[in-house]
Design a protein around this nucleic acid. Structure first.
Length: 278
DNA sequence: AAGTTCACCTGATGGC
DNA sequence: TGCCATCAGGTGAACT
């Protein structure tokens, strides 16, 4: 589920309940996520104040008062729900529960368990994987940075944009949407794009991300805001999940093109309009 | 070495 | 109704 807008939505949802709060307790129901949650997690975080919440790409980072950082990734199906006034009722796949000093419960639920939740010395976070090799966050990435990172890549632009070392935060939905808005074919070799095209691509990417954040992200199946409500961005997709349908503001000859095409690139579905994206 | 495929896991959906 | 195959917002290991 969670690409940058969904993670940002989660960050904004938990921030009032976690920022400057003390972790009174942490309960882990399942340790076997994408990576094992370390057994030391309780002693690493219990009693610590959360000094700051950050997001880089699709990762949430919680800086603690003991100079450790919680590294948190939602995988494909992770959601976070806050129980403060509402009474907590355990649900299937509630794997991690943080209770704060003012008795808010922040609950991480992840059916597929592709997510990650672990700690690291804060000092080491940026100099060890995955962050040591991660590209600039998509929100603050500059056209020059993106151009430079794409220049060395021969793979199709769709595949390159999913590579978090090129640009961090884009996933399958927003890459498809951004390429459509930019009129760029997902099949175009990355190093064949001009700086002008990349300017356009980045501008549209950042605009789509901003709109998506404003709409609380996209709820296809799992994603929810931290109050349990749905995101709305899925209602504004131009191409993603719209195989055979007309593209946004369609002026194409639908009988001729067959509408939006779905292809596979590096094992993942790509949706695009062959007419508008050459 | 860069690019592609596979494995990880659960749940939803569709065909028979 | 059940059973099986396929697919899904991501990532890193294991291939070529």
């Amino acid at each position: 589920m969670p690409e940058l807008p969904e993670v940002e939505t989660i960050k904004r949802g938990v921030e009032p309940f976690l920022d400057k709060k003390i972790i009174k307790d942490i309960q882990v129901n399942r340790y076997d996520l994408r990576f094992k949650i370390p057994q030391s997690i309780r002693q690493d975080v219990q009693g610590q104040t959360i000094n700051k919440l950050n997001r880089h790409g699709k990762y949430l980072l919680l800086d603690l008062s003991n100079s450790k950082t919680i590294i948190w990734h939602m995988g494909m199906s992770g959601t976070v729900k806050i129980f403060s006034d509402e009474k907590y009722e355990p649900r299937k796949h509630d794997h991690v529960i943080i209770t704060t000093n003012d008795n808010a419960m922040v609950v991480y639920n992840d059916p597929r368990r592709f997510g990650m939740f672990y700690t690291k010395e804060s000092h080491d976070v940026s100099i060890t994987p995955p962050f040591s090799k991660m590209g600039p966050d998509a929100i603050s990435c500059t056209p020059q940075e993106l151009f430079n990172n794409l220049q060395t890549k021969k793979s199709p632009i769709k595949t390159a944009l999913l590579d978090q070392s090129v640009i961090a935060g884009l996933g399958n939905i927003y890459v498809c949407e951004a390429l459509f808005k930019s009129g760029i074919s997902p099949l175009c070799p990355s190093n064949a794009l001009t700086q002008d095209q990349i300017d356009i691509l980045l501008r549209h990417s950042q605009e789509i991300l901003a709109v998506a954040i404003k709409n609380g992200g996209s709820t296809l199946k799992d994603h929810r805001l931290t109050d349990g409500s749905m995101g709305y961005m899925q209602n504004f997709f131009s191409v993603y999940g719209r195989k055979g349908l007309p593209c946004n503001d369609c002026t194409c000859d639908h009988d001729k093109t067959g509408g939006i095409a779905q292809i596979k690139q590096s094992g993942r579905s790509t949706f695009y309009c062959p007419q508008k994206q050459k």
